[in-house]
Design a protein around this nucleic acid. Sequence first.
DNA 1: GTGAAAGCGCTAACAT
DNA 2: ATGTTAGCGCTTTCAC
Lengths: 328, 328
Amino acid sequence: MEDVARDAGVSRALVSLVMRDSPKVSPAKRTAVLESAAALGYSPNRLASRLASHRTNTVGVLFLDLHNPVFADIYDGIAEGLAGSGNQVMVAVGSADPGTELEAIRSFADLRVDGILLAGYTGSPEELETALRGTPAVVITRELEVDGVDSVLTDDFRSGALAVEHLHGLGHRHIAHVDISDWLPYTARREGYLWAMRQFGLEPMLVHSDMTGRGGRAVMEQFLASGAALPTAIFAHNDLTAVGIMEALASHGVAVPDDVAIVGCDNIEVAASPLIGLTSIDQHAGELGRLAAQVMLERLAGGSVPAVTRKLEPALMVRRSSSPGAGS
Amino acid sequence: MEDVARDAGVSRALVSLVMRDSPKVSPAKRTAVLESAAALGYSPNRLASRLASHRTNTVGVLFLDLHNPVFADIYDGIAEGLAGSGNQVMVAVGSADPGTELEAIRSFADLRVDGILLAGYTGSPEELETALRGTPAVVITRELEVDGVDSVLTDDFRSGALAVEHLHGLGHRHIAHVDISDWLPYTARREGYLWAMRQFGLEPMLVHSDMTGRGGRAVMEQFLASGAALPTAIFAHNDLTAVGIMEALASHGVAVPDDVAIVGCDNIEVAASPLIGLTSIDQHAGELGRLAAQVMLERLAGGSVPAVTRKLEPALMVRRSSSPGAGS
DNA sequence: GTGAAAGCGCTAACAT
DNA sequence: ATGTTAGCGCTTTCAC
C-alpha cells in the first residue's frame, strides 16, 4: 500500500479511500491509484482492513447437510436476499457430528462476521448462545428462544396436521408417521401429526428414522421384513425420507398409492418429478432464505431490537403418491 | 487479552501461548489462564492472530452449484481428506454468474486462505491465475494449465467413450449426446463421445443443454415437439440432465429403455434409486474430493513443486435405463 | 483533499 | 518457562 501510494504520488490514506471506493476522491487521483495498484499487483489485505475497521461485511451461513436439496434452495434465497447489500456470504457445513456444528459457529464468531444464519441448527439454545458470543444470528427452520437470535421457519406443527388432514380426507384411517426425533430436535411435525390423528380419533403409528433417503429406505425395509400389517398411508418427516420409503416399497412390489399412499415434506425439486410424483408439504425454502437474509439485514441496521419470529404457512402439493381414487 | 493476563497474573505472551495450546507452559499457569479466559468470556480474535502470524490454516472451497448433488459428494471427500490436518474449510458458491466465481476466488485470496479448492471452475486459466494472486489451488473435475494449480479429475474423454461403447455393445446405432458446451467449458465428455462414434463408423448427433435437470427436460420436450425421429439411445453430459430427459420421455409415453436407452454421467445417488434406475458413469466424486484435499496438503507442506494432475478412471454402472434385451 | 500519528488484537523474535 | 519489544497491514482521527 505504501508502494502504491508512492507510485501514484499520493498518501496512504488516499489509497485506502480509493480501495473502499469512497466518494470523496477526485476522479483523476482515483484512476491514478487504481492504475498503480494494477501495475504493482496490489490488492488490500482484508484481514488487516477488517481488524482495523471492526467491520467484516460478511455473514456466515451454516448448513446442516449439503445432501438435502432443501438447503440449496435456502441458499439461493439467502444469496438473493443479501444481493446488493454489500455483504459477503461465507458458508460452513455442520455435518452429523454435534461438535462440528458448534465449532463452525465459534469459528464464525472468532472471525467477527457481522451475523450468522443457521440453516438446520441441531444443538441446544444454551450451547448456541455461548458459541455466538453476542454475534447476531437467525435460525432457519426452527424456533429458538435466545437473546438476539431471530427465527424464520414454516409452521411445522401445521405441516404435520396438514398431511394427516389430506390423507384422512382421502379416506385413510391407518396413517403412520416416520419421524427423526431420535436423531434431531425437530419434533413439531410429529406433534402436528399426533394432534391431527387425535382430532380424528385415529390411532397414531410412529416409526423413527434419520433424515436421509437411505434411512427412510432402511426403516421401510425393516418394517416390511417384520411382517407387520402395513398402514394405508405414510407421512414422512421429509421428502428424502419419503423417497427412500417409496424405493423400499417399489422393491417389494407394494404399489404407491394403491397399496400405500405417501406424503413427504419440504417439496424439494425431485418430488415434483413425473418419475417420482411425491405429494409433499411445501416449506417455501427459497422464501425462508430470503426472509432470513432480510431479517438479518434489519437487525444489522436496526440495532438490538427484540428477537423476532417469522412463520410461514405450509402448502400442500398433491401429486401421484397420494392421488385420490386409491387407498383406504 | 490484556485483561485475561492481568486476571491470571501472567503476561500477554503467556496467554497467547496458552490459546494456541503450546507445549511450553506449565500446567498450573495454563489452567489459571483458561479459567480467567472463561470467567471474562474471552476468546481470541482470529483476524488479529491471522494477520500477525501470516497463517490462516484455512482452505477455501468454491462450488459451482449446490443443486447438483455431485458437489455434496465432493465436499464429503474434501472434509474427510482435510480432517485432522488442522485446517478449516471455508465454502463459497459460484452460481451461474461468471463474475461471482472470480469474485469469490479473489475474496479467498484477499482473506489470505492457505489454499483454494475449485470444484467446477468455469472461467479461463488466465482469469484464474490473476484472481489467485499466487494462492495455491487445485481444480477438481477439470484440467488446467496454470502455475501452482494442480488438477484432480476423472477422465472425461474416457467417460464419453465408455458410454458409447456400452450402448454400441447393446446394439444401438443411433446414439445422441446432450452436452453443455454452449454453457460451460466442459467439452471432454463430448470429445470422447465423438471419438467413439467415429471409431464405430456411426453418425454423431449433438444437442445442447445447460447442466440442470430442467435444462435436460426442456431440450427433450423441444425435441419431441419437433417431430424429428428419436435416437435409440441418449448419452447425457450428467445425471441431472439425464433424469430431466427421462422425465420428458415419461410425460410423452416414450418407454425407457425399450424405446430409448439413457446413460448419464456422475453416478449421483438418485441414479441408483430403484425408482429411477439410471445407467451412469461413476466419476468417484468423493474420491476426487479426498484426492484434492491430499494434493493440497502436499503442496502446502512441500513448497512449490511443479503442478500435478491426478486422473481417475471412470466406471460404468449399468442399470435399468440401458438394460440389455431392449433397444436397437 | 492530504499527511502524521495512534491504534486494531494478536504473534514473534528476543532476552531473561 | 516467562516477560519485552516490535511489528502484521490496514483504518481513523485530526489538524493542515
